[in-house]
């Protein structure tokens, strides 16, 4: 097991290095750079930036260096000093920018995830056990509708309903008077009163999808011989269901649970923009538009790191859950 872990961590580092290089390369691919974006913005406002100032700025940001030199400056700072560089646009260190928003993104995602699990597992199990019952048809209908409706449209509809019928703005996570306030009980309550809507909107498609997955996985297991064996022992039906087929049907779930990790930080970009939520999604989106390359690169690097760590966690979770996988790791 120890050797297996060591090999996995080594592979992870190599993967991350490759990802960082490719990411940085892709960011540089579009024509122009941050300075040319600035110039375009200035021209739109009717201002002119002198060529001397442009050259000075390029020199300051190191934009005239070759790609490899820029990459090396960036990655060596991360590796040796833990410094992700400064954002051009915000003129602040990338790390403080990101961490500011990570908290809320994380909170929002975890709330959504818990809601999705709490709703979809029971419904999925019910739907499989009572296949083709009226309840199953209702769940199936909801499942397909939930998966088919784009989230941003749901968000728009909810906002419209909020404004039209309740005279209340549905966007944001805080009321205007709390946005810049320090944390206190009032702000927390305000957060909760705003939170349910984005949680609901973001969660709906995930809930619908997970209901379908849980149902399909459980239906695969429900009529296997080992379930009949357990029934023949005299186990009551619900206990039997949870101990045997449900447990088996969760294996595919555990094999993907780690992939949720990057999602916890990245936030739902489109929904966040529509609902103007202060999460990380819109930040990344804006930075990509303005070619704020250290911010984008570092952000994607962090997400990639979380993805590979998540995959490892998934594999470990699956090994913990399923003895067959565990034994095969111990053998290797």
């Amino acid at each position: 097991m120890g050797r297996y872990m060591l090999r996995r961590v080594g592979l992870m580092l190599v993967t991350l290095l490759a990802i960082s290089f490719v990411t940085f390369w892709i960011i540089q691919l579009p024509p122009g750079d941050y300075v040319s974006t600035l110039v375009a913005q200035a021209e739109a406002r009717g201002e002119v930036i002198s060529p001397e100032r442009m050259a000075a700025m390029r020199a300051r940001y190191g934009l005239d260096d070759s790609f490899l030199v820029q990459y090396w400056n960036w990655i060596s700072n991360i590796i040796f000093r833990g410094d992700f560089g400064d954002s051009f646009a915000w003129n602040r260190p990338v790390s403080t920018l990101i961490w500011d928003r990570v908290g809320l993104s994380f909170f929002l995602s975890v709330s959504t995830l818990l809601m999705v699990w709490a709703i979809s597992f029971p419904i999925g199990i019910y739907s499989a056990v009572k296949q083709y019952s009226p309840g199953d048809y209702v769940a199936t209908f909801f499942g397909f509708v939930g998966m088919a409706i784009p989230e941003f449209m749901l968000a728009l509809v909810f906002m419209w309903i909020g404004v039209k019928y309740f005279g209340q703005s549905a966007g944001g996570l805080f009321s205007p008077e709390y946005v810049d306030a320090a944390w206190n009980i009032g702000k927390l309550m305000d957060l909760f009163s705003h939170l349910w809507l984005p949680v609901l909107i973001i969660g709906i498609s995930g809930t619908a999808g997970l209901i379908r997955i849980t149902r399909a996985n459980l239906l695969d297991e429900l009529y296997k011989p080992y379930v009949i064996t357990a029934r023949a022992k005299g186990l009551p039906e619900w206990k039997l269901l949870l101990k045997y087929p449900v447990r088996m049907s969760l294996s595919p779930f555990f094999s993907t649970v780690g992939w949720l990790l990057p999602g916890l930080i990245s936030g739902e970009t489109i929904i966040s923009i529509v609902l103007s939520l202060p999460t990380t999604g819109p930040l990344l989106y804006g930075a990509t538009l303005s070619q704020d390359m250290y911010l984008v690169g570092s952000f994607i690097l962090i997400l990639s790191a979380l993805t590979v760590v998540g995959t490892l966690l998934s594999d470990l979770a699956l090994a913990w859950w399923d003895p067959r996988i565990r034994r095969s790791y111990q053998g290797s």
Binding site: Y226, I228, A232, K233
Partner: peptide, 23 residues
């Protein structure tokens, strides 16, 4: 029925590979 199953009448099935829970 549950008091009879496994206690007074028990069963052995055809497929020993799949009739036991793997986990």
């Amino acid at each position: 029925l549950r008091a009879v199953r496994g206690k007074r009448i028990s069963m052995v099935f055809q497929e020993p590979m799949t009739s036991l829970s793997a986990v």
